[in-house]
Amino acid sequence: MGLVKAKIRKTKTGSGASDDMVGLSAALQAADPAERRSAARRLGSTTGCEAALLDRLAFEHEASVREMLVLSLMQLGTQDAVRGLAEHLRSEDASLRNAVVEALEAMPDAVAPNIELLLADHDPDVRIFACNLLVGLAHPDVPKWLSHVLENDSHVNVCAAAVDALTEIGRPDCVPALRACARRFPEEPFLSFAIDVAIARAAEQ
């Protein structure tokens, strides 16, 4: 037969010296992506190495390494990790920005204290991303934050992002804020449409 019994390899345990933070941080700059991925993975279980991961994230272009850097920061889940990741919301690199949104929404407890600051950012793109990440953020204050955006934010696309989020997680008490938003942008057919959808879904409750 062509089938041969495979041998399952023994796991190599502890690769010694390179496991210290200095060694791993250096390995994050290695030329071989596999080596960088491996270092990024191991730093995910070492607290205090957020800065090293975040620094590398700023200019890592290999998608598989970037995924691992973000995943390790998610696993660390610290305030340092959250603030550093949030800075990358301003990046010109779309895939980095979106990887960051995804990471942040998976860290509700660490992200929550930073939401109001993000929603008040001068850059509308950052505010849009903040609304985007609220969709997936498991936190009881999400409807309150989004209602605040609807009543106060002057940018139509930020409001559209908040409406979209509320379409999925809206409650009846969000309806007044949705109506207020519709009154503020009467000339936007998309926003009127989206608000009608969001109200229909929220009011059903």
């Binding site: 037969m1 062509g2 089938l3 019994k5 495979a6 399952i8």
Partner: peptide, 20 residues
Amino acid sequence: IAIHILEYWARADSYDIEIF
């Protein structure tokens, strides 16, 4: 998987195939 390979992949005998 094993039966499918043995029955339906004509080149099964030319390769060492390991199934985990």
